[in-house]
């Protein structure tokens, strides 16, 4: 491939920590790759693990779920519940041969604008290596 592959990443961010952290990265004008697009949810506990499968089907090359650090959840327990669900979903995806780089999870607090940049950059760089997701994206029929 002569042209560098640019992955498309869908990210689910909790409103209180990670979304606020990403806002802070913005306010602090911290630059990072434009490949990642955010869906705001109130809590990482809202993210149904099947959203990950769906995003991969719908054309995402990778997915990120980000929530508050353990103990900081605005709703006390949501990130703990999410951690369990995604620990299993991650293993399942891995088991059917989906590259590990395609599903990512992070804890980013409202004060970690710099960490947010690192997370995005890391995820995007890994996916640039991994290339496009070709295993089971939905075929789009465009008439």
């Amino acid at each position: 491939m002569s042209e560098k592959f640019e992955p498309n990443v869908v990210a689910f961010l909790c409103n209180w920590c990670s979304y606020a952290g990403a806002d802070l990265a913005g306010t602090s004008r911290i630059e990072y790759p434009p490949n990642l697009h955010v869906i705001r949810v109130m809590c990482s506990g809202r993210v149904n693990p099947l959203f990950i499968v769906n995003a991969l089907q719908q054309g995402a090359d990778g997915v990120l779920v980000s929530g508050c650090h353990p103990g900081d959840c605005h709703y006390m327990e949501g990130n703990f519940l999410a951690r369990r669900r995604f620990a299993l979903m991650r293993e399942l995806l891995n088991f059917v041969g989906v590259d590990e780089s395609r599903f990512n999870m992070s804890w980013v607090s409202a004060s970690e604008g710099a960490k947010w940049k690192d997370v995005v950059t890391g995820v995007v760089n890994n996916l640039r290596e991994a290339g496009a997701f070709t295993e089971f994206p939905r075929k789009k029929i465009d008439w």
């Binding site: 353990p70 103990g71 327990e77 703990f80 519940l81 951690r83 369990r84 669900r85 995604f86 620990a87 299993l88 991650r90 990512n104 999870m105 992070s106 804890w107 997370v119 890391g122 995820v123």
Partner: peptide, 29 residues
């Protein structure tokens, strides 16, 4: 990961409705 076996204890809470604070999280960035 969770030392859980379903279908052996009718009183057991289902796995994914709870958590332990020290559940494994080495995969989290």
């Amino acid at each position: 990961q969770f030392a859980f076996t379903p279908g052996v204890d009718p009183e057991a809470k289902p796995l994914l409705v709870g958590y332990r604070p020290n559940d494994k999280e080495d995969f989290i960035l």
